[in-house]
Amino acid sequence: MANTLKLEIVTPESKVYSEDVDMVTLPGIEGEMGIFPMHVPLMTQLAAGELSVRKGGQEFFLAVGEGFVEITGERVSILTDMAIAAENIDEAKAEEARQRAEARLAEKLDDEEVAMVKATLDHSLAQLRVKRRHR
Protein backbone atom coordinates (compact mmCIF):
# COMPACT_ATOMS: atom_id res chain seq x y z
CA MET A 1 0.00 0.00 0.00
CA ALA A 2 1.07 3.51 -0.55
CA ASN A 3 2.99 5.14 2.23
CA THR A 4 2.36 8.64 1.09
CA LEU A 5 -0.78 10.70 0.97
CA LYS A 6 -1.91 12.63 -2.04
CA LEU A 7 -2.82 16.02 -0.73
CA GLU A 8 -5.06 18.19 -2.84
CA ILE A 9 -6.05 21.67 -1.78
CA VAL A 10 -8.49 23.44 -4.04
CA THR A 11 -10.12 26.83 -3.70
CA PRO A 12 -12.77 28.32 -5.98
CA GLU A 13 -10.06 30.38 -7.65
CA SER A 14 -7.45 27.76 -8.28
CA LYS A 15 -5.85 24.48 -7.42
CA VAL A 16 -3.43 25.52 -4.70
CA TYR A 17 -1.63 22.35 -3.92
CA SER A 18 -1.43 18.86 -5.32
CA GLU A 19 1.42 16.68 -4.15
CA ASP A 20 2.32 13.46 -2.41
CA VAL A 21 3.15 14.08 1.23
CA ASP A 22 3.96 12.08 4.35
CA MET A 23 1.59 13.63 6.82
CA VAL A 24 -1.01 16.36 7.09
CA THR A 25 -2.16 18.14 10.21
CA LEU A 26 -5.34 20.05 9.72
CA PRO A 27 -7.70 22.13 11.83
CA GLY A 28 -10.90 20.06 11.92
CA ILE A 29 -14.06 21.56 13.29
CA GLU A 30 -13.71 19.37 16.38
CA GLY A 31 -10.03 19.96 16.91
CA GLU A 32 -6.70 19.35 15.23
CA MET A 33 -6.27 16.16 13.29
CA GLY A 34 -3.09 14.51 12.17
CA ILE A 35 -3.57 12.39 9.09
CA PHE A 36 -1.14 9.64 8.14
CA PRO A 37 -1.41 7.34 5.15
CA MET A 38 -3.91 4.50 5.57
CA HIS A 39 -6.23 6.64 7.59
CA VAL A 40 -9.81 5.38 7.70
CA PRO A 41 -12.09 7.15 5.24
CA LEU A 42 -13.47 10.21 6.90
CA MET A 43 -15.35 13.33 6.01
CA THR A 44 -15.32 16.40 8.12
CA GLN A 45 -15.50 20.13 8.09
CA LEU A 46 -12.47 22.32 8.19
CA ALA A 47 -12.18 25.30 10.49
CA ALA A 48 -10.13 28.36 9.67
CA GLY A 49 -6.61 27.91 10.95
CA GLU A 50 -3.23 26.44 10.28
CA LEU A 51 -2.58 23.44 8.14
CA SER A 52 0.81 21.81 8.23
CA VAL A 53 2.23 19.39 5.73
CA ARG A 54 5.19 17.09 6.28
CA LYS A 55 7.04 15.98 3.23
CA GLY A 56 10.44 14.30 3.17
CA GLY A 57 11.46 15.62 6.59
CA GLN A 58 10.41 19.16 5.83
CA GLU A 59 7.37 20.96 7.05
CA PHE A 60 5.22 23.46 5.19
CA PHE A 61 2.52 25.62 6.64
CA LEU A 62 -0.57 27.08 5.07
CA ALA A 63 -3.33 29.28 6.36
CA VAL A 64 -6.73 27.90 5.39
CA GLY A 65 -10.31 29.10 5.63
CA GLU A 66 -13.40 27.06 6.39
CA GLY A 67 -14.17 24.20 4.13
CA PHE A 68 -14.52 20.48 3.83
CA VAL A 69 -12.11 17.60 3.95
CA GLU A 70 -12.43 14.18 2.50
CA ILE A 71 -9.90 11.64 3.68
CA THR A 72 -9.30 8.20 2.26
CA GLY A 73 -6.43 5.82 2.84
CA GLU A 74 -4.29 7.41 0.19
CA ARG A 75 -5.78 10.80 -0.42
CA VAL A 76 -6.70 13.99 1.41
CA SER A 77 -8.92 16.36 -0.54
CA ILE A 78 -9.45 19.76 0.92
CA LEU A 79 -12.06 22.17 -0.36
CA THR A 80 -11.72 25.55 1.18
CA ASP A 81 -12.39 29.15 0.35
CA MET A 82 -8.87 30.26 1.18
CA ALA A 83 -5.46 28.66 1.24
CA ILE A 84 -2.23 30.64 1.39
CA ALA A 85 1.24 29.30 2.00
CA ALA A 86 2.97 30.79 5.05
CA GLU A 87 5.66 32.48 3.00
CA ASN A 88 3.09 34.22 0.81
CA ILE A 89 1.15 35.79 3.62
CA ASP A 90 1.27 39.54 3.70
CA GLU A 91 1.12 40.34 7.38
CA ALA A 92 0.32 44.02 7.03
CA LYS A 93 -2.53 43.25 4.66
CA ALA A 94 -3.96 40.56 6.90
CA GLU A 95 -3.75 42.84 9.90
CA GLU A 96 -5.55 45.56 7.99
CA ALA A 97 -8.24 43.12 6.85
CA ARG A 98 -8.69 42.00 10.45
CA GLN A 99 -9.21 45.53 11.66
CA ARG A 100 -11.60 46.32 8.87
CA ALA A 101 -13.63 43.21 9.59
CA GLU A 102 -13.76 43.98 13.30
CA ALA A 103 -14.92 47.50 12.58
CA ARG A 104 -17.60 46.16 10.28
CA LEU A 105 -18.82 43.73 12.92
CA ALA A 106 -19.54 46.63 15.24
CA GLU A 107 -22.02 48.00 12.72
CA LYS A 108 -25.56 46.75 12.31
CA LEU A 109 -25.65 44.04 9.73
CA ASP A 110 -28.07 41.36 8.68
CA ASP A 111 -27.25 37.73 9.27
CA GLU A 112 -25.78 37.06 5.88
CA GLU A 113 -23.43 40.00 6.12
CA VAL A 114 -22.38 39.01 9.59
CA ALA A 115 -21.50 35.55 8.32
CA MET A 116 -19.47 37.05 5.51
CA VAL A 117 -17.59 39.48 7.71
CA LYS A 118 -16.94 36.75 10.26
CA ALA A 119 -15.47 34.60 7.53
CA THR A 120 -13.11 37.37 6.45
CA LEU A 121 -12.15 37.92 10.05
CA ASP A 122 -11.39 34.23 10.48
CA HIS A 123 -9.31 34.26 7.33
CA SER A 124 -7.20 37.17 8.43
CA LEU A 125 -6.78 35.75 11.93
CA ALA A 126 -5.67 32.42 10.52
CA GLN A 127 -3.13 34.17 8.30
CA LEU A 128 -1.78 36.22 11.16
CA ARG A 129 -1.51 33.21 13.43
CA VAL A 130 0.42 31.21 10.88
CA LYS A 131 2.69 34.10 10.00
CA ARG A 132 3.57 35.04 13.55
CA ARG A 133 4.33 31.50 14.56
CA HIS A 134 6.74 30.81 11.73
CA ARG A 135 8.92 33.78 11.56
Binding site: G28, I29, E30, V40, P41, L42, M43, T44, E70, T72, G73, E74
Partner: peptide, 12 residues
Protein backbone atom coordinates in the same frame (compact mmCIF):
# COMPACT_ATOMS: atom_id res chain seq x y z
CA UNK B 1 -14.40 4.36 -6.91
CA UNK B 2 -12.55 4.67 -3.64
CA UNK B 3 -10.47 1.65 -2.83
CA UNK B 4 -12.28 -1.30 -1.37
CA UNK B 5 -15.53 0.58 -0.97
CA UNK B 6 -14.77 1.45 2.64
CA UNK B 7 -17.44 3.52 4.26
CA UNK B 8 -16.68 7.04 5.23
CA UNK B 9 -16.91 8.13 8.79
CA UNK B 10 -18.43 11.51 9.36
CA UNK B 11 -17.26 13.92 11.92
CA UNK B 12 -19.26 15.35 13.66
Amino acid sequence: PEAGGLEHLFEP
